[in-house]
């Protein structure tokens, strides 16, 4: 479903501020794979997700989603294949627009916008149902502006928007990190439910080691722009936090020695 080969990205190349963010990342996801990415700050996790989404154009390497080579496509032309939830709850929706208008945009993700009214009668019920899952009362506030919502409500909306039409690939970049623990848990459970029910292929960045072990069928550890450890299936299930932390240090030490 996703094939990334040899992705390289250097920010501010050729200047004294040059930063290698991706140093040859290859990763391949099968349909239905749910990969959790972990790694320290600056490991390149966000850059990797951004390059998959199209926000970052890679210097080298190729990207294919659902069999389509998207390497040269800008973000908006990949939107039919990929949807995402950002870490910043404000990033995923348009504040001055209403909940239902945001949902309407999401319902046409990747499709050309037409000169037809964005809001139609029977869609509302679909939106309501999707938002009811979060138990935040969003379903009764369809005509409210999104900027009036709390961070947790807004992130729930962002998730609802991302899965409203089933994407080939769902990208989640620490999407619960900015929320209070209780809301984070709600949004995480809703995420897991959606991945399961809609059989989504997903890439999720998290800094929560327990989540990394508990959720998904693949685990990817990144460091300094590279994938340094991978586990899947039972190997992944049997991992412990201690082992993961050890891995981190192992790689760390190797880096130091190198």
């Amino acid at each position: 479903m996703l094939t990334a080969t040899g992705l390289r990205k250097t920010f501010n190349a050729g200047t004294t501020n040059a930063r290698i963010a991706l140093d040859g990342v290859s990763l391949s996801l099968d349909e239905g794979d749910f990969a959790v990415i972990i790694g320290g700050n600056g490991a390149g996790k966000s850059t990797f997700l951004n390059s998959v989404a199209g926000e970052v154009t890679v210097d080298e390497g190729t990207l294919a989603i659902a069999g389509r080579d998207v390497t040269a496509l800008p973000t908006h032309r990949r939107a039919g294949l990929v949807s995402r939830v950002f870490q910043d709850p404000l990033a995923g929706s348009a504040g001055p627009m209403t909940i239902e208008e945001n949902m309407a945009l999401a319902s046409r993700r990747g499709l050309p916008s037409r000169l037809r009214f964005a809001l139609g009668g029977k869609r509302r019920e679909t939106y309501r149902q999707m938002l009811r899952v979060f138990g935040l009362g969003l379903e009764n506030r369809l005509t409210h502006k999104v900027e009036l919502l709390s961070g947790g409500q807004r992130q729930s909306l962002a998730l609802a928007m991302a899965i409203l039409t089933t994407p080939k690939l769902l990208l989640l970049d620490e999407h619960c990190a900015a929320l209070d623990p209780k809301t984070a848990e709600t949004v995480m459970q809703a995420t897991l439910a959606a991945v399961e029910n809609q059989r989504l292929t997903a890439l999720m960045v998290t800094h929560n080691m327990q989540h990394a072990i508990d959720y998904g069928n693949r685990l990817v550890m990144m460091m300094d722009g590279r994938v340094v450890f991978e586990a899947r299936g039972d190997d992944k299930k049997n991992l412990t936090i201690e082992q993961l932390v050890e891995r981190f240090h192992l790689v760390d030490d190797k880096m130091l020695l190198a």
């Binding site: 989404a53 199209g54 908006h76 950002f86 990033a91 995923g92 945009l105 993700r109 990747g110 928007m161």
Partner: peptide, 9 residues
């Protein structure tokens, strides 16, 4: 929100 707009295609 241009970032969100792009992400919606």
């Amino acid at each position: 929100n241009p970032l969100m707009a792009r992400a919606q295609g």
